[in-house]
Write a protein that binds this DNA or RNA. Structure first.
Lengths: 150, 150
DNA sequence: TCTGACATTGACAACCATTATCTATCAGAG
DNA sequence: CTCTGATAGATAATGGTTGTCAATGTCAGA
């Protein structure tokens, strides 16, 4: 996974010589476009299905490949749901952040957590851990779903 | 997942009428025993392999089943590694807590995080989320491994 | 504009952890 | 001891993800 087996077109997103080509290929553009429209988190398979629905002819393999690259570039967020499936979402904000996801409708909110960052760093430093990274996910039921259920 | 499909032997761990039988069967006892000895997190498959290595004849299915039940009972912690595999570890402390795991040797430290709990609750309350739960995992390289590498 | 080299695609099969199924077996009560 | 429901576990699915590799597309330079 670390050996960047693919690592394609790393040469910046050029302004496109013709058309609105963003990253070289039609497929990549379509994928990015769909990602921008879908709210909340979706699995690679769902994204692939959506692509097909829109008439775009893109292979599942390609979807996986792009999502992987995009998530390495931090252009999309990747989280795992409770069944272990990987879900992707286009990042709204650029930097490091976390998510609060609704268990019912799947929509998610990006949350900042300076407090958490500090805490994590503190804990790690105290134990002498280095090269530290962390994941934080909050799950709950959003106001909308909560009132709908009640 | 919520429909407690299995949910066996819910009738408390009786003091055992004969032997040190903890939960009725040899297999369950062996599993718990191994869990107690293994440090850090291990996959169900690893635990199963260890069981076999010790000469215990336990089926892989059974290992999975027990780990599932134990984790529902919060008798073991379950986390997911980066490849999506589920790892289990016997809980040292009873209550809610998080882990800081070494990427290199797999050992983990249990950490308390009142700060995080408070933060998560605050964020959730602010957004109107209810029935909130959260996961926090810290990954890094422990002092031992760090100095070994250096 | 043409062309060749290299990157990308995608159908398909392989992987592999996990779960479902279904019968044989065991534990414990009476 | 015997009966009965719980448990075990071999085996077969499941299903998301990744590997393979030939076909195709892209773009730079001629």
């Amino acid at each position: 996974m670390t050996p960047q087996s693919v690592e394609p077109s790393r040469q910046l997103d050029r302004p496109s010589t013709r058309g609105t080509r963003v990253r070289g290929t039609r497929q990549a553009e379509a994928l990015v476009s769909v990602l921008g429209k879908l709210p909340g988190f979706h699995s690679a398979q769902e994204i692939h299905a959506e692509l097909r629905r829109l008439g775009e002819r893109v292979g599942l393999t390609t979807v996986y490949r792009h999502l992987q690259v995009l998530s390495e570039d931090e252009a999309v967020d990747a989280i795992r749901d409770e069944s272990g499936e990987t879900l992707y979402r286009r990042c709204a904000t650029g930097g490091h952040h976390h998510h609060m996801t609704c268990r019912s409708c799947g929509r998610s909110i990006e949350v900042e957590g300076r407090a958490v960052e500090r805490w994590a760093e503190g804990v790690a430093a105290e134990a002498g851990f280095v090269d530290v990274d962390h994941t934080v996910e909050i799950f709950g039921v959003c106001p909308g779903c909560a009132s709908a259920t009640a």
